[in-house]
């Protein structure tokens, strides 16, 4: 799994090595990929790279980035990205996060009001809105694989991947991503109980974009999430599920462009 264009480098951040992909030129845009890192090869990134320098780090334990034992949560990863922003000397950076990457982006934005110009969260986890027995987020680890696929994709055929055509490095990355996602998000399931109480600190203008048919986290969850961030707007991409950036790239980009320019 690699970006078809651009450069990939190793960046030392707080004693660990992160893999960082970069594409395009222009104002910096920090793109925090989802747990499956499907964004790396997605056409919408090429489009964004026409106007922005798109910077895509692999989170610790994802792609080829290291995963030290002390990193146990998306909150910890957000601290690594504070360092990354410093090391890369990013100013007025647009941060766009998808799913797990959106959760990390929200954590990050609660910790700094200096570097982030705009924040976009796409079908993101991170908060618990309902009661203990409410299923805010589909339990993907106790659901049948076909149910998870149907929840993630409006067209489940989009989510089928042919592992037989992948080499060992690509398969190793998939296996690492699956493992690291569980390492950080198993318990509490897909949320940080403290994040809800911290979201009021976010100063950057914020947009939440949600796939209309997301079966993992519904649009009502997205709306509830948006209400916790001062002044945040909420937009829906019709016809797409958990990955609107892949399933409906044009509608997604038009919504995103309308916000970040």
């Amino acid at each position: 799994m690699s970006t078809s264009e651009g450069t990939t480098s190793s960046v030392k951040v707080g004693g660990l090595t992160l893999e960082v992909h970069r594409r395009g030129a222009g104002k910096p845009l920090l793109l925090l990929a989802g747990e499956e890192q499907l964004e790396l090869d997605a056409p919408f990134v090429a489009e964004l790279a026409r106007t922005h320098e798109v910077i895509i780090p692999s989170a610790p334990g994802f792609g080829h980035s290291e995963r030290p034992d002390w990193i146990t949560s998306p909150d910890d990863i957000a601290y690594m990205y504070l360092d990354l922003i410093d090391v890369l000397e990013l100013r007025d950076v647009v941060v766009v996060g998808f799913a797990l990457g959106g959760w990390i982006a929200a954590e990050l934005a609660t910790k700094t009001d200096r570097s982030i110009s705009k924040l976009v969260l796409v079908d993101s986890y991170g908060v618990k809105l309902g009661s203990p027995t409410d299923r805010d987020i589909l339990d993907i680890w106790t659901s049948r694989p076909e149910k998870v696929l149907a929840a993630k994709w409006a067209d489940p055929a989009m989510g089928k991947r042919d592992f037989s055509k992948m080499n060992d490095d690509e398969l190793t990355i998939i296996a690492r991503n699956i493992e690291s996602f569980a390492r950080f998000c198993w318990e509490p399931y897909m949320h940080n109980p403290k994040l809800k109480q911290r979201l009021h600190r976010i100063k950057a203008p914020t947009l939440l974009i949600w796939g209309e048919k997301d079966g993992v986290i519904s649009t009502s969850y997205g709306e509830g999430f948006a209400k916790l961030i001062p002044g945040a707007r909420f937009a829906v991409v019709p016809g797409a599920a958990h990955y609107p950036q892949i399933e409906a790239p044009e509608a997604f980009l038009s919504t995103l462009r309308g916000f970040i320019g």
């Binding site: 037989s164 690492r176 493992e179 690291s180 569980a182």
Partner: peptide, 22 residues
């Protein structure tokens, strides 16, 4: 059921690479 047989990260990455290969 299949989702209970190999929870994520229960076996090492190289085992799961083989699992992906079947």
């Amino acid at each position: 059921e299949p989702q209970y047989r190999n929870p994520p990260g229960y076996v090492p990455v190289d085992f799961n690479v083989n699992a992906l290969k079947g």
